[in-house]
Design a protein around this nucleic acid. Sequence first.
DNA 1: TGATGCATGTAATCCGTTACATGATTCA
DNA 2: TGAATCATGTAACGGATTACATGCATCA
Lengths: 178, 178
Amino acid sequence: MNVRTLCLGILSTGEASGYEIKKDIEEGLFSHFIDASFGSIYPALTQLAGEGLVTVRAEEQSGRPDKKVYAITPKGHDALARVISVVPGRDKFKSEFLFQMLLQQYITPELMRAAIDKQIADLEGDLARIDECRRAEQPLAGARFVADYGEAVLSAGLRVLKEKKAELLLALPQQAAE
Amino acid sequence: MNVRTLCLGILSTGEASGYEIKKDIEEGLFSHFIDASFGSIYPALTQLAGEGLVTVRAEEQSGRPDKKVYAITPKGHDALARVISVVPGRDKFKSEFLFQMLLQQYITPELMRAAIDKQIADLEGDLARIDECRRAEQPLAGARFVADYGEAVLSAGLRVLKEKKAELLLALPQQAAE
DNA sequence: TGATGCATGTAATCCGTTACATGATTCA
DNA sequence: TGAATCATGTAACGGATTACATGCATCA
């Protein structure tokens, strides 16, 4: 699933500018299972507009570039329905953290601790974000399910991490645990 | 973290050919948080050998191309220790499945059911793989932790999915649930 | 006899990130 | 005064996937 489809999906919930789409991806319900940068979002929107799948409207602003507000068209809805109508591919999960834990013999106890603490902070941050999304009323049908799924997965990881942290640090050469 | 480092990491647990490395990535402990294809593994190994971070030994075989067995060198160990000694980046999780669940209004009940069933099968497959890894004795220090973490995360997702499956299917337009 | 596993490699292509370019406003 | 937010865009570059090329052995 590419940025093109992602933009179409977000626009299906209401009009938005490229900048706002980026924020949705970073802070919204999409945030914990999708990524995209401006460098891919802006070209995707231009392309989508060129194909008539979205419309553009320039909103004038003082002291800033015009805000380009995109809205999905019926043709865009059709295209979205089409690309989304295939059995989805496998989830992809990449974790430098787990790679590091596997190869812990090569790192210092300090780095080990820093890595674990960062991971805990990341997970807690993600959970907080999901919580916020829950508060805000979501226009999407599956919002609650996605929030529940994300919360379950993230808090399961967090739980294991907190349980095993002391053990992981104790197993290291010298140096006491926290 | 790139395929180069990944190969180095796998070779740190013992010598292997490119083909075997691929199998490790697909079936071993690495499988649920890393991906790589032959198209990236073979060039990475050639590069690594060129830099003296690994050695190559050709094992003759009947009726097949020589098997090239790679082994990490002290220089390779140093390089691995160096690249691994930074606080890891954020986990990256991509899920077409969750995207589809969010946009469920656009898909048919049949596809919905197929997607959920596939996700359940994928998760169960991953869990079975972790279980197998646990049985096999792992040379890596963090193996147990990574297995525990992976199992917790995957089974949390699986639990939610099974709990909400009926609900998800009932929420759809016509068509009865299973 | 046809799929799957073993075994290596290259080239085209895709898709995306990072960095750069520009610049006003607002908050601390 | 310096950072963060708003706002859009391009170009260089990187990194990996996919498809192609080759071919024997084994199992069902």
